[in-house]
Nucleic acid binder design. Structure first.
Lengths: 200, 200
DNA sequence: ATGCTAGTTGACCGTTCGGTAAAATGCAAG
DNA sequence: CTTGCATTTTACCGAACGGTCAACTAGCAT
């Protein structure tokens, strides 16, 4: 069982950076297997299909974020609005370090996959949507706390949270188009100027 | 020459909706040729490579926008800030009509392609970057006009323009993840709340 | 020791991929 | 009437694609 777990996670470990740095369609099972030192038949013992692999990869990225930067950023000890700054900073430093190692800005794997596959695979789209939905909830709770604390004027927390998430993804997209994480540094802080007023 | 032009444009016409609704990697030359009623050898007479085709497709989309919605939105007769509203509205109605016909929200082809290929093909990335750069210029000029007219308080027009473009792309991304153009309707108007202050 | 099962192997499936080359066709200018 | 060029056709290339299958191995419980 330990060996089994190891093979499975070696496959995922080989797939992660590839899906992140290229695209879903551009990464083949064969390449992943070679890199993981696993036979193709063995791959299909653990994953019924390529889609199931990428779902596992999505989960791993999500967990990594949830227990890493996101947990740090949304620390209840921090003043609410500073959490958002922290998150944007984290995105910036992460992309910057990736570029230093890899030579390229890879962007957000959830955004990347969303635009690539969501017209072709509703199951993947739903998976990605769930990730975004959780992210939005974090923003929303933070905004509600900030409003309650009087840090910011009352607003529509739900829509503003969604707007902030959209902005973050958009900034990362633009940064990727320039292959330059500094775009995140320059544009990121403006996230706090976004506001959707409460409906009358 | 007329026949030649026709073949070439039939190829592009077949390729456009496919690249828009699926992805670069997922659309094959063969399929495009079949749909256009063109032989593969004939395809390679007009396009040296698949990449050259997608560049032509990008140009067509860019022209279509530039002479359509964008020209309408950035009408100098309109008050500057209303132009931005107009553009967001145009994006909304366009995506909505696409969904009515096609059943899916396809999003922005420039954003889609950017996230898919920009780590793998610097020439395509540069092409897409140029598109974004022009779009940003439109926003910037509009913002400068609004500041000059006293409609909005002075700000860093360059960075705010970039932020607005990022936000628009992000909103479309999120809408695509939900396969729902109404997201653009709900979040779009908040674009005007974005501000980057002038550096001291 | 035997039988069951999870895991592994490597060969194989048909299909599609982007791209090539040579021969055939159509057409227009000299 | 012929030369020359742009266009088109057809057949083909090697490689890669996602996925399947039957045979084999190893470990563990009865």
């Amino acid at each position: 069982m330990n060996v089994a777990t190891d093979t499975r996670s070696r496959i995922i470990a080989a797939a992660k950076p590839r899906f992140h740095s290229r695209s879903y369609a551009n990464v083949g099972i064969q390449e992943i297997c070679e890199s993981a030192g696993v036979q193709k038949g063995s791959f299909y013992h653990f994953f019924p299909s390529k889609r199931d692999l990428v779902m596992a990869v999505i989960d791993e990225f999500a967990d990594e974020w949830a227990h890493g930067f996101v947990a740090e950023a949304f620390d209840p000890a921090l003043p609410p609005m500073e959490r958002i700054d922290y998150l944007v900073d984290a995105a910036y430093f992460w992309q910057k370090s990736i570029k230093q190692v890899h030579g390229r800005m890879l962007g957000c794997i959830f955004g990347n996959l969303t635009l690539e596959v969501s017209t072709q695979d509703d199951i993947l789209r739903a998976k990605l949507l769930a990730i975004f939905s959780r992210a939005k909830s974090r923003f929303k709770a933070t905004l509600e706390e900030a409003v309650a604390a009087g840090t910011i004027a009352p607003l529509d927390a739900d829509l503003t949270a969604e707007a902030m998430l959209a902005y973050l993804e958009g900034v990362i997209l633009l940064a990727k188009s320039q292959n330059d994480p500094e775009v995140i540094y320059r544009l990121g802080p403006a996230i706090k100027t976004l506001r959707v007023e409460k409906a009358a």
